[in-house]
């Protein structure tokens, strides 16, 4: 499903030759938003470059407003970058958006589900958008609902779900088409500790299926528990990248929060 052909960016300064082991590549990505009057410019993403290997769980860690969601929105085609290049599954986000949409699953920050439909109906709808058979949708949805403990509530209208249940359903919908690349934007926000643990186990189990996961979070424990590597972002800039263990060792820190503190002089949660 992933495009393995070699691709080159149109900008000669940003040459990218895709490698079979790379799932996502971001090269000097910039996104500038204008305020409503068009006077003030905000650099939401400011020249970020990184690459993510196939099968890796990669975390974008940073306070609110750091630019994590903007990066995800560019990668899944919801907004266009101002400068730079990005490749998802070997496809260029500027030119091959339709191909990218075939190979990604997106779990947005806001639980985007139809409130008047039950869990099964919501999942079935998004499965059909990926042209899946009803049988396959049922098989996969039953498994995921069971794994996340939502089986008993699958016939209940989503509007009657708790916030945590809605977010779990949000996650299942992202996975229903069995996409090789998955974007999870703050997937556990608003969950109680038990639901969060269960969701972490679920996300961890995706490693066995060799899925590439790009996850945004401002929870330190989440990044440490799930991510093979993390990119720490502040004010749209990449300030550190590596495995949690490497970063903790490099900055002689106790945890990733301490790493952030040592680099920026403030805590991640201050921005929340």
């Amino acid at each position: 499903m992933i495009n393995n052909k070699n691709t080159k960016s149109s900008n000669s300064e940003l040459i990218h030759v895709s490698d079979d082991s790379i799932a996502i590549e971001v090269i000097y990505l910039k996104k500038v938003f204008n305020d409503k009057k068009g006077i003030e410019e905000v650099n939401a993403v400011d020249g970020i470059s990184f690459s993510i290997k196939k099968g890796e769980i990669f975390g974008l860690l940073g306070p609110n407003g750091a630019g994590k969601t903007t990066i995800i929105n560019i990668l899944c085609g919801l907004i266009k970058q101002t400068e730079g290049e990005a490749f998802v599954g070997g496809y260029c986000v500027k030119e091959d958006l339709q191909d990218i949409k075939e190979i990604i699953g997106v779990c947005p920050q806001q639980a985007a589900i139809y409130p008047y439909l039950n869990a099964k109906e919501n999942i079935e709808f998004f499965g059909k958008l990926h042209l899946m058979d009803k049988e396959e949708i049922n098989r996969r949805s039953d498994r995921f609902l069971d794994l996340l403990g939502l089986s008993k509530a699958k016939g209940k209208k989503a509007k009657n779900y708790s916030g945590g249940m809605m977010r779990q359903l949000n996650l299942i919908i992202a996975l229903i088409s069995d996409p090789p690349i998955l974007f999870l934007d703050e997937p556990t926000v608003g969950m109680d500790p038990r639901a969060r643990r269960k969701t972490w186990e679920f996300i961890n189990s995706l490693k066995k299926t060799n899925k590439t996961v790009i996850l945004t979070t401002h929870y330190i424990e989440e990044a440490e528990a799930l991510c093979d590597r993390v990119a720490i972002i502040e004010y749209g800039k990449l300030i550190a990248i590596g495995s949690p263990r490497e970063l903790i060792a490099k900055y002689k820190a106790e945890d990733l929060e301490d790493v952030f503190m040592k680099i920026t002089g403030r805590r991640i949660l201050e921005g929340i």
């Binding site: 899944c76 085609g77 919801l78 339709q98 949409k101 075939e102 990604i104 997106v106 947005p108 806001q110 639980a111 985007a112 589900i113 139809y114 409130p115 998004f126 958008l129 990926h130 042209l131 919908i173």
Partner: peptide, 14 residues
């Protein structure tokens, strides 16, 4: 408002 249009926009639906 519910984020559904955005989500649909990330699927292959044209």
């Amino acid at each position: 408002e519910q984020g559904l249009l955005k989500r649909i926009n990330t699927t292959p639906m044209t």
